[in-house]
Amino acid sequence: LTVQLGNLEWHFDNPEQALKMAEELAKRYQLKVEIDNGTLKFK
């Protein structure tokens, strides 16, 4: 699973870790998370 923020990307083997990080980033920057083809992206 990949977490993508702008041109930064983090790759996780563990989806739970990816979701946890995505939630933290979304909270911190007040963004919405969307999943696009196995990639978590922020809007």
Rank of each mutant, 00 (worst) to 15 (best):
K41L: 07
V33L: 12
D13T: 13
E24Q: 14
D36A: 10
Q4N: 05
I35T: 05
Q30H: 15
K20F: 07
N14S: 11
K27E: 08
R28L: 09
P15N: 06
K32E: 10
E24S: 13
F12S: 01
K43M: 10
R28G: 02
K27M: 10
E9F: 14
L5G: 02
L8W: 15
I35M: 12
A22C: 04
K41F: 08
A26Q: 04
E23G: 08
F42W: 04
N7A: 12
L31I: 06
K20C: 09
G6K: 04
N14F: 08
Q17S: 10
A22E: 00
W10R: 03
M21D: 02
D13F: 08
E9Y: 14
K41A: 04
L8G: 04
K27S: 09
I35E: 07
G6P: 03
G6M: 06
E34I: 15
E24D: 11
K27R: 14
G38I: 04
Q30C: 15
E16Y: 13
L8T: 08
L25P: 00
L1Y: 13
F42D: 00
G6I: 04
K43H: 09
F42A: 02
L19G: 02
R28K: 13
F12R: 01
E23K: 12
D13I: 09
D13W: 09
K43D: 04
L1T: 09
A18N: 00
L31E: 00
E24M: 15
Q17C: 11
H11W: 10
N7T: 12
Q30E: 07
G38D: 06
A18R: 01
N14I: 09
E9S: 14
Q30W: 10
W10A: 02
L40V: 14
G38V: 04
L19D: 01
A26D: 01
L25F: 11
M21K: 07
D13Q: 10
W10N: 01
Q30V: 05
A26F: 07
T39A: 05
A26Y: 07
E9H: 12
G6N: 06
L8S: 08
L40D: 00
E16C: 14
I35A: 06
W10D: 00
G38C: 12
K20A: 13
F12A: 02
N37Y: 04
P15H: 10
K43C: 14
G38H: 08
N14E: 08
T2C: 14
E16Q: 12
E34Y: 15
Q4S: 08
R28T: 05
Q17R: 10
Y29N: 02
L8C: 15
E16L: 13
L5H: 04
K32G: 05
Y29E: 00
L25I: 14
A18T: 03
K41H: 07
L31Y: 05
M21R: 04
W10F: 07
Q30A: 10
L40P: 02
L1M: 13
M21L: 14
A18F: 06
N37W: 04
V33P: 03
A18M: 05
Y29S: 01
Q30P: 02
E23N: 13
